[in-house]
Design a protein around this nucleic acid. Structure first.
Lengths: 215, 215
DNA sequence: GCTATGTTCAAACGACCGTTTTAATTCTCG
DNA sequence: CGAGAATTAAAACGGTCGTTTGAACATAGC
């Protein structure tokens, strides 16, 4: 099981092609469902290249998760505390909804994480346990700006989770919304309006968080 | 590919054992991830029994979906329109949250449907397209009781979906909530409180559905 | 009890899986 | 340029998958 020591120009190109194709495959079929043969076919590289460059399928998945997390956190890492909380919330929601229309890398990454929430892979558990924390912290901070000052940490976490949930349900079901029997036309304007709606609901909901939640 | 003509006593027992084990497996690993060999091992039957009784893995999955849907719709089919809308909403939410604590068949069925929302199987698309409709209609009707009278059908559908989403995100992440770093103690009392919270939020949110949503 | 039919069983088939091996090719650098 | 390392390539390995086969077993009806 040789592994590259020096990283040459060509090998980097191969690595990038593999990761790109692997993101496609893992997003579409999940970790177990995606096959190495399908990935190398799409990437146009040899099958052994994956084991050579990443050691194993797990190693490749680790690399994809790394790439995904970096891309997803890129703009969220700087909490927009300088903005009015309503504006910050609206932007957060809109960003979460972006995969509904943007069929780009970002929506693939979101899908990979959706797979992980349903059946976490061992790779994910080990690798992500700490890396996701700061990403989640942004949402928690955002939620706290709307919560009553007496809210506990746990309530803030629940609020943040609630926030993610309201967005992700639409992202997850975007295709079903677009198809019969609903046939919603999901374009930028629709998502903009939806972001307004969710932001409004969420702001109201967080502000009146019942203290009974942790009864 | 022989199939049973008469259904005898013994064959029904075998069928039931298989369906029970298959529900376990499909809920845990999804349709593709679950293997026939694992199912028959858990059921304690021969491997060929599945092809004999259900024709194929797809046929078995169809039977499981049928069982699951029947169980999930059992009490929801009768819309509780005689109750005050707040009570009906609270009960609906509480029922949706039931799998958080009830580690019984019902929670397995919910998990199977979670798999399908992430990657619908051909079986599901064909079989469920119409069967799910009445189940979803109950939620839509419930949402409509809170919406402004001017709300369109599509807004009611979005409201219903929003309702499902608020519940399912907690169901889906129940395990993560219970584990570090949160360590929430998810018992009946917690879920009761959570149901109150969600019902309150949802009632408020639906009542002030912005008309811009369908811009 | 015998026959016919329903049901179970062990074994095998071909296909696909992730990984390894071995050899050829390409690149890097003195 | 040429030696040595890095990378690609093709083929094969062992394993699991869903399905099929053909014989053994259990059951029902006359």
């Amino acid at each position: 099981m040789p592994r590259p020591a020096k990283v040459t120009r060509v090998s980097k190109a191969t690595r990038d092609k593999i990761i790109k194709a692997a993101s496609h495959a893992f997003a579409r079929d999940g970790y177990e469902g995606a096959s190495i043969r399908a990935i190398v076919a799409e990437a146009g590289v040899n099958q052994a290249a994956i084991n050579y460059h990443f050691g194993s399928k797990e190693g490749l998945y680790r690399a994809v998760l790394q790439t995904a997390l970096r891309a997803l956190m890129k703009d969220d890492e700087v909490p927009q505390n300088n903005l009015p909380r309503e504006t910050a919330l609206r932007r957060f929601v809109r960003r979460q909804l972006r995969p509904m229309t943007a069929r780009d890398e970002l929506s693939e990454y979101v899908r990979i994480f959706n797979w992980e929430t349903l059946k976490p892979s061992p790779v994910f558990r080990k690798f992500m346990a700490r890396e996701v924390a700061p990403f989640f912290a942004v949402a928690t901070e955002l939620a706290r700006r709307f919560l009553p000052s007496r809210a506990t940490d746990q309530q803030a976490v629940v609020g943040a989770l609630w926030l993610f949930g309201q967005c992700s349900i639409f992202v997850r079901n975007a295709d079903q919304l677009a198809n019969p029997p609903l046939r919603l036309k999901i374009d930028e304007r629709f998502v903009d309006g939806l972001a307004d709606t969710i932001a409004t609901w969420a702001a109201d909901g967080l502000a009146r968080l019942p203290t009974r939640t942790r009864s």
